[in-house]
Design a binder for these strands. Structure first.
Length: 553
RNA sequence: GCCCCCGUAGUUCAAUGGAUAGAAUAAAUCUCUCCUAAGGAUUAGAUGCAGGUUCGAUUCCUGCCGAGGGCACCA
């Protein structure tokens, strides 16, 4: 039995003895460690109905609890307006340290999703266009959520839905026909897209041509367009693979918009009663669900994103018997998704309940929103390169193995940390200087603490828990909370709980490290065991964030 | 106009209805003959406004102010 349920049970028994009807007993960790390791407000909750003074009631509960106090609990006391605080004992923490060391990579895992099949779709870049930092954000969040789910025992399928048809493709192909470059590179595709996008806005004739190309991409009847399309798509996708590799994501399933056209159209055609015709287009009236109307098939007969997404939803559930299908996109798609989902739900009400849309905020610059029109959209590649350059600069005087690989781990980790340190839904103000400084709360801060622990272990060897000192350290009082943090982050789909926790943990380790000598210290053996427990927790925690742990830095 | 999201130190972010609202950064001051100073220690600094619910509100409700996103053939 874990410590949480043990304490709750004891409290419930005490309440019963006092003849108080037990409501749900909840424990929390006091913000202030001096207030103990667990705390309950049950006396304050019950005092109301019982017509008693909360503090006196708390004292009576504590009196009973003290009679049957177990080894895990050091002391129980009443504090503040009527909190009951539990301080855990040396025995408890020593046992935890030992358990962490024994569990190794299993430490922090749970089985709350055992036997479930969950798909997480994220990143979703568009071939023919550059991946920008918005995609980086979706990737970091999606990868971490996928890992949190995997950590809970579910079979996790990482999916990526890439927009290989649509107006942006037509614009790029138009650019290619005008620029006529033989050697198709990513850079060239970017230029071609920019050329086409500009022409689409400024030149009526070009706009007509591009709209024509758009239709040809769908119908696949034009040899020239098909050839350019095939080549451009291939180059784009290869380039994306390089970025995924760098970021540490391995997708299990790729979906493409072009493949969803047929499935989506079929959905609309077979469920005509769900939709209606309006001004030559086929629309769905979201108003019946408090939403808004959206076009699914244009008056030109082309399926919109909405229809393709219906196809995607259908396809996902056909391909896998999913218990949960998560889609991660930017916030701007939130309202749209509700409408698409409502339409899907009219046909598949049960499947619709298994869909979950998680939105992340926008990446902003301190100067304001990024826009492609102003040309201040930062590409994923250039950002990664820039951060890596800064890391290498910082490392230039250091003599370590695999410098390049380490620099990559640090830069990617730093970037991911800055995305995952705050709640998912919120915008991120991306400040280059701050992102590159890597001081204080940052990816390298965590990685650095981890490499220090590894260095200690390689020097001092493995320790032993038998040697534990009387005094419990702050580090120990934070360490054992890791599994509940991982669980909470999974339940809330919020990786930032892990980030915040690890920062606190690293801070406790660094502080301990700076103030007590481990090797040659009074309790060297236990110190080394504790160092190992920290190392395991930090490694497993960083894994949940998709951040690598270099051995040296 | 309607619908969603948000408003916390100078700045960037935390806080399952709880205790003295935490960090980081910028500022000031210490700290490497001692296990990696990308570190550690100390000091100063915040809940947009007005009500309500509650023993207790940054958190829930209402109104106002401010910022962002969405609202028909783009994705």
């Amino acid at each position: 039995m874990n410590i949480y349920t043990l304490i709750v049970e004891q409290i419930q028994k005490a309440l019963k003895k006092l003849g108080i009807k037990t409501e749900e007993v909840l424990l929390e960790h006091p913000n202030e460690l001096s207030n103990g390791d667990f705390s309950t407000n049950i006396a304050m909750m019950c005092a109301k109905h019982e017509g008693k003074n909360p503090k006196e009631l708390a004292e009576r509960i504590v009196e009973i609890l003290n009679k049957k106090k177990t080894d895990e609990i050091e002391k129980i006391e009443v504090a503040g307006p009527g909190f009951i605080n539990f301080h855990l004992s040396r025995e408890f923490f020593t046992a935890q340290t030992e358990m962490i060391i024994n569990q190794k990579e299993k430490w922090g895992k749970n089985e709350t999703l055992k036997g479930k099949k969950v798909m997480v779709e994220y990143t979703d870049p568009n071939p023919f266009k550059e991946m920008h930092i918005g995609h980086l954000m979706a990737n970091a969040i999606g990868e971490s959520i996928a890992r949190l789910i995997e950590n809970s025992g579910a079979e996790t399928i990482r999916a990526n839905y890439q927009g290989d048809v649509g107006l942006h493709v037509a614009k790029a192909i138009y650019g290619m026909t005008e620029l006529k470059e033989k050697n198709v590179t990513v850079k060239y595709l970017g230029e071609a897209y920019a050329y086409g996008a500009k022409a689409y806005e400024n030149n009526v004739k070009a706009k007509e041509t591009i709209d024509e190309i758009n239709k040809k991409v769908y119908s696949k009847g034009d040899v020239v367009v098909d050839e350019l399309y095939k080549r451009g798509r291939e180059v784009s996708l290869e380039h994306f693979e390089e970025i995924y590799k760098k970021l540490g994501t391995k997708f299990d399933k790729y979906y493409f918009e072009s493949e969803m056209v047929g499935v989506g159209k079929k959905f609309v055609e077979e469920n005509k009663k769900v939709f209606e015709e309006s001004d030559g287009a086929i629309v769905y009236r979201g108003e019946k669900h408090g939403l808004h109307t959206r076009v699914f098939i244009t008056s030109e007969g082309l399926p919109t994103y909405e229809t393709k997404d219906l196809g995607l939803a259908t396809q996902k559930f056909n391909d896998y018997s999913l218990d949960l299908s998560i889609t991660i996109t930017a916030e701007e798609q939130k309202e749209y998704f509700k409408v698409m989902r409502a339409a899907f739900g009219e046909v598949h009400p049960k499947l619709e309940k298994k869909m979950l849309h998680i939105t992340h905020g926008m990446m902003r610059l301190p100067s304001g929103k990024m826009s492609s029109r102003k040309g201040d959209v930062i590409s994923a590649e250039s950002l990664l390169a820039e951060v890596e350059k800064a890391v290498e600069e910082k490392m230039k005087d250091r003599d370590i193995k695999d410098k390049e690989a380490v620099a990559e781990s640090i830069s990617v980790g730093g970037l991911k940390f800055s995305i995952l340190k705050q709640a998912t839904g919120r915008d991120i103000v991306f400040d280059f200087d701050k992102a590159l400084s890597f001081e204080g709360d940052s990816g390298p801060y965590l990685q650095y603490a981890h490499t220090r622990s590894l260095a200690l272990l390689s020097k001092g060897g493995e320790g032993d828990v038998k040697d534990a000192p009387k005094v419990v350290t702050e580090l120990e009082r934070i360490l054992y909370r890791f599994p509940e943090i991982a669980k909470r982050a999974k339940v809330e789909y919020e990786p930032h709980h892990v980030t915040v926790y690890l920062t606190e943990l690293a801070s406790a380790f660094n502080s301990w490290y700076a103030n007590v000598p481990v090797i040659g210290g009074k309790n060297e053996k236990y110190g080394l065991a504790l160092t190992r427990a920290f190392q395991i927790t930090m490694q497993n925690g960083l894994w949940l964030l998709g951040i690598k742990t270099p051995e040296h830095m």
